[in-house]
Design a protein around this nucleic acid. Structure first.
Lengths: 335, 335
DNA sequence: CGAGAAAAAGACAACGTTGTCAAGAGGCAC
DNA sequence: GTGCCTCTTGACAACGTTGTCTTTTTCTCG
């Protein structure tokens, strides 16, 4: 029998006699034949590969793996699969991943951009490969779909949250400023402080340390000074953890207010709970994938920029009132 | 000029005149041509697809995403990429993923098996698709490479750790017993208890709840009974968190010993720290990928079973001595 | 039983590459 | 100028599928 007949049976096309169909099916079962999807999609040019690429910083970071999960959910609805790769913040690696994915003919790309330059991506944009940026925003590319948290607004909210409790001496601890979101968060902090008529002193802003341990040491240094800040804004996950350990070790968790950007596990278990402005990575991923499929399936349209709103989660640490002196354990916690 | 000439230039083959090479390169740059890797690999049959599939339970769970990260690292060394998909413990979904990956001609599969049956996977095993199981072990397939933590040994160690501090009334809280690792952990607990000559009473073993909240309520019930257990073995992540909250709410964190299976973030920040038998998911992933590539590239060999050893991390909670009565806050913490 | 139509099966090209082999261009020695 | 060799270039088939068209078989009905 001919190859074409087999093709017909496999695709359950009309017009094959039951006898032959049965024989083909039997042989397929016997031989364990699996059609080669690559050849299929090569032949039928209007069929896409059914794969999208996701270039992220590090899958083992729960923030990013939740984004991946969100993407995967939407991809699944469209019968798509996700090819992912971690850059570790290395833009050469990002370029490699993008090239490899494109050469494998992914139908679209979702990228957490690393560094401010976008390398071979700009070529892809020109060629019309559907592309969505998540979480961060490279300087160059404002003609591309984008989904991210409102880093600046969130930082402003967090700062205002402390200001509203009467804090005037607030310390800001943030990520290195070569990271886009770190710059925005710092900007949000400044904005809130200045709107409150407070001068932002340079020695109350530190950025650039990397591990929770480093942050713990630094925050400890801050807290043994006089005068010390009455509130801390720890503008990233690891920083929040480091500061938490510092406060804990000094026995100051009840006395110094702390609010973090990004949620922390167990943030509700410690006492007082850790107040934060969380991000919603699952939602970031879902929205990004939705934008991508919209572009894949729909008509061309103007680039979309989605900036997800934030709000403060109050758990205790952010609601501590300022205590300039060293009072006798004021268990008072407003609200 | 002919297509073949372009092919030669793209692959930098010998024997194309500099003039033509330059012209081809210029056109490629001008047109933004990207070779189609699928067609390439279709033609050269000895070339693999350069993609491996990873079927896991849920990428947004840090345990699994760390495994993915480990796999990715090894894959990268081999110039491979990883296609991943979450099953959410649904074995129908697992079958779909496996089929889709196979039909896309992944060169190998790494699977965290869901449920005890392996469905279409057994067909793949017969067809010789390289396959490695991680973390869990389906009943049927003992002729397949496997990497997992020594769940039973780890549970035994955890239990012995409490026994060594003099605990005799230990409560076990575990995952539903349809999960392979949950059965092994329970078995490890029993083994240690029986070796110590203690009878394992049914009412001291609970399995099957799902969320930290449920566990919190259940553990609270245990702790307000008389007599109450003096030590808790919380045999999974979420359970540890739930119990932690229960102990915390009752003010018993200093008085009741607790040891967990799986590490918890912030486990070192709370007081006392949470003693655990951690798993090393990154290492699980790395080893699984190494086994897969060994099979992909090397000669056929007998199935390999790697059971990774565990050890207790002491952080305080697991070293609390038994306190049968309600003593006057003994701040004593052995070790 | 034969003509015509409908149904079933197959032949062939094509998707975008690369391996194989043949053809053409140019150089050198006689 | 001829023969031979080398260096470039191109023609063609093939990978595993499917779309299109053609051929063969079967069925229907007068």
């Amino acid at each position: 029998m001919s190859i074409k007949t087999v093709s017909r049976v496999v695709n359950r096309e009309e017009g094959v006699s039951p006898v032959l169909t049965a024989r083909v099916d039997a042989s397929i079962a016997y031989l364990g034949y699996q059609p080669d999807d690559r050849a299929r999609r090569l032949r039928t040019t209007d069929l896409r590969t059914g794969v999208i690429g996701f270039v992220l910083v590090d899958v083992s970071n729960p923030f990013f793996s939740s984004i991946l999960r969100g993407i995967e959910e939407v991809a699944r609805e469209h019968n798509y699969f996700v090819l992912s790769g971690s850059t570790d913040g290395d833009s050469a690696r990002q370029d490699q991943l993008v090239s490899a994915f494109v050469t494998r003919r992914v139908d679209g790309l979702i990228v957490v951009p690393t560094g401010d330059s976008i390398g071979p991506l700009s070529g892809e944009i020109d060629r019309g490969t559907p592309l969505v940026f998540v979480d961060l925003e490279p300087d160059e590319a404002n003609n591309v779909d984008l989904v991210r948290t409102d880093h600046q607004g969130g930082a402003r909210q967090a700062t205002e949250h402390l200001l509203r409790r009467g804090h005037t001496d607030i310390a800001f601890f943030g990520s290195p400023l070569d990271i886009f979101s770190a710059r925005l968060r710092l900007a949000g902090f400044r904005e809130a402080m200045e709107a409150a008529g407070l001068t932002v002193r340079g020695e109350r802003m530190t950025t650039g340390l990397h591990t929770p341990d480093q942050w713990q040491r630094l925050v400890t240094d801050y807290l043994v000074q006089t005068p010390r800040p009455t509130g801390l804004f720890t503008a990233q996950n690891f920083i929040t953890l480091g500061a938490l350990q510092a406060l804990h070790a000094l026995g100051l968790r009840d006395r110094i207010a702390q609010i973090g950007f990004d949620d922390v596990d167990l943030g509700a278990v410690v006492t007082p709970g850790v107040s934060v402005v969380p991000q919603y990575p699952l939602e970031l991923g879902r929205r990004a994938a939705q934008l991508l499929f919209h572009r894949l399936e729909g008509a061309p349209h103007e680039p979309v920029r989605e900036i997800l709103a934030t709000k403060v989660i109050e758990r205790g640490s952010g609601e501590i009132a300022p205590s300039l002196t060293t009072p006798a354990r004021p268990r008072s916690r407003p609200r």
